[in-house]
Deep mutational scan, measured.
Amino acid sequence: RTAFSSEQLARLKREFNENRYLTERRRQQLSSELGLNEAQIKIWFQNKRA
């Protein structure tokens, strides 16, 4: 289980509010910017949509 920092969570929530689905390219960008792997971001979005 991933423990996200408050900064990472704030960024993910802001991104989710703008778009509930990420393109592969956007997921790669977020992964690089947040220091998370793409799978972690993908799962976070899946869980948030559920």
Results as ranks from 00 to 15, higher is better:
residue 4 F to S: 02
residue 6 S to Y: 11
residue 24 E to F: 08
residue 38 E to L: 05
residue 1 R to P: 15
residue 50 A to H: 12
residue 19 N to C: 10
residue 7 E to K: 08
residue 48 K to C: 07
residue 29 Q to C: 08
residue 10 A to S: 09
residue 20 R to F: 05
residue 32 S to V: 14
residue 17 N to D: 13
residue 12 L to Q: 00
residue 16 F to G: 00
residue 16 F to Q: 02
residue 25 R to F: 12
residue 9 L to R: 06
residue 29 Q to E: 11
residue 23 T to L: 03
residue 48 K to V: 06
residue 20 R to N: 12
residue 5 S to L: 04
residue 33 E to H: 04
residue 33 E to P: 00
residue 17 N to S: 12
residue 42 K to T: 14
residue 23 T to P: 06
residue 16 F to S: 02
residue 28 Q to G: 06
residue 27 R to H: 04
residue 7 E to C: 07
residue 20 R to D: 05
residue 48 K to D: 03
residue 35 G to C: 06
residue 25 R to L: 12
residue 7 E to Y: 10
residue 28 Q to N: 07
residue 39 A to P: 04
residue 47 N to G: 06
residue 37 N to I: 05
residue 19 N to S: 09
residue 3 A to Q: 13
residue 11 R to W: 05
residue 17 N to G: 08
residue 13 K to M: 14
residue 4 F to Q: 01
residue 9 L to W: 05
residue 39 A to V: 12
residue 2 T to E: 14
residue 2 T to D: 14
residue 40 Q to K: 06
residue 17 N to Q: 12
residue 12 L to N: 00
residue 25 R to I: 11
residue 35 G to W: 02
residue 24 E to T: 13
residue 13 K to D: 14
residue 38 E to T: 06
residue 33 E to G: 01
residue 43 I to R: 12
residue 41 I to R: 00
residue 36 L to A: 04
residue 38 E to H: 04
residue 6 S to C: 14
residue 43 I to N: 10
residue 12 L to D: 01
residue 24 E to P: 15
residue 24 E to L: 10
residue 7 E to Q: 09
residue 2 T to Y: 14
residue 12 L to F: 01
residue 15 E to K: 01
residue 37 N to V: 06
residue 1 R to D: 15
residue 12 L to W: 02
residue 5 S to A: 02
residue 44 W to D: 00
residue 39 A to I: 12
residue 47 N to S: 10
residue 16 F to R: 02
residue 17 N to P: 01
residue 37 N to A: 13
residue 42 K to D: 15
residue 22 L to M: 05
residue 27 R to F: 11
residue 35 G to L: 05
residue 42 K to N: 13
residue 34 L to V: 04
residue 1 R to Y: 15
residue 4 F to C: 05
residue 34 L to Y: 02
residue 34 L to C: 00
residue 17 N to L: 09
residue 1 R to K: 14
residue 32 S to H: 10
residue 38 E to R: 04
residue 13 K to Y: 14
residue 36 L to F: 02
residue 2 T to S: 07
residue 35 G to R: 05
residue 5 S to C: 06
residue 16 F to D: 01
residue 45 F to C: 02
residue 19 N to Q: 04
residue 41 I to D: 00
residue 25 R to Y: 11
residue 43 I to D: 14
residue 34 L to A: 00
residue 39 A to K: 12
residue 26 R to N: 05
residue 24 E to M: 09
residue 43 I to Q: 12
residue 49 R to H: 08
residue 27 R to G: 09
residue 8 Q to E: 03
residue 34 L to S: 03
residue 42 K to Q: 13
residue 12 L to A: 01
residue 18 E to C: 09
residue 20 R to T: 05
residue 1 R to A: 14
residue 11 R to S: 06
residue 50 A to T: 08
residue 35 G to N: 08
residue 14 R to E: 13
residue 23 T to D: 12
residue 3 A to H: 13
residue 3 A to M: 08
residue 49 R to P: 04
residue 34 L to H: 01
residue 20 R to Y: 06
residue 40 Q to T: 13
residue 46 Q to C: 10
residue 21 Y to W: 09
residue 32 S to D: 11
residue 19 N to D: 08
residue 30 L to E: 00
residue 45 F to Y: 04
residue 42 K to W: 14
residue 8 Q to A: 07
residue 15 E to R: 02
residue 23 T to G: 07
residue 6 S to P: 10
residue 25 R to V: 14
residue 4 F to K: 02
residue 41 I to Y: 01
residue 9 L to P: 00
residue 4 F to G: 01
residue 39 A to L: 14
residue 12 L to P: 00
residue 1 R to L: 15
residue 22 L to G: 02
residue 33 E to S: 04
residue 11 R to K: 09
residue 23 T to F: 01
residue 24 E to S: 14
residue 15 E to S: 04
residue 39 A to T: 14
residue 11 R to H: 06
residue 41 I to W: 02
residue 26 R to F: 04
residue 26 R to D: 05
residue 34 L to R: 00
residue 1 R to N: 15
residue 47 N to C: 09
residue 35 G to V: 03
residue 15 E to V: 05
residue 32 S to E: 14
residue 23 T to S: 14
residue 42 K to C: 13
residue 21 Y to R: 06
residue 48 K to Y: 13
residue 1 R to S: 15
residue 9 L to A: 04
residue 26 R to L: 06
residue 24 E to H: 11
residue 20 R to E: 10
residue 47 N to F: 11
residue 6 S to L: 10
residue 33 E to K: 03
residue 40 Q to I: 14
residue 5 S to Q: 03
residue 21 Y to T: 08
residue 13 K to C: 14
residue 20 R to H: 10
residue 8 Q to K: 03
residue 43 I to S: 10
residue 40 Q to E: 14
residue 29 Q to K: 08
residue 14 R to N: 08
residue 31 S to R: 03
residue 12 L to R: 01
residue 41 I to H: 00
residue 19 N to I: 03
residue 9 L to Y: 05
residue 1 R to F: 15
residue 4 F to R: 02
residue 13 K to H: 15
residue 46 Q to L: 09
residue 7 E to W: 12
residue 42 K to F: 12
residue 38 E to W: 05
residue 7 E to D: 10
residue 8 Q to L: 04
residue 15 E to W: 02
residue 13 K to F: 10
residue 38 E to Q: 06
residue 20 R to P: 15
residue 14 R to D: 08
residue 38 E to A: 07
residue 5 S to R: 04
residue 13 K to E: 15
residue 7 E to L: 08
residue 18 E to Y: 07
residue 16 F to N: 01
residue 37 N to H: 12
residue 36 L to Q: 01
residue 5 S to H: 03
residue 37 N to R: 08
residue 6 S to D: 13
residue 14 R to Y: 11
residue 3 A to L: 10
residue 17 N to Y: 10
residue 44 W to S: 00
residue 35 G to F: 04
residue 34 L to E: 00
residue 26 R to A: 07
residue 34 L to I: 08
residue 27 R to W: 09
residue 9 L to M: 07
residue 30 L to M: 04
residue 31 S to K: 04
residue 26 R to C: 05
residue 44 W to Q: 00
residue 26 R to E: 06
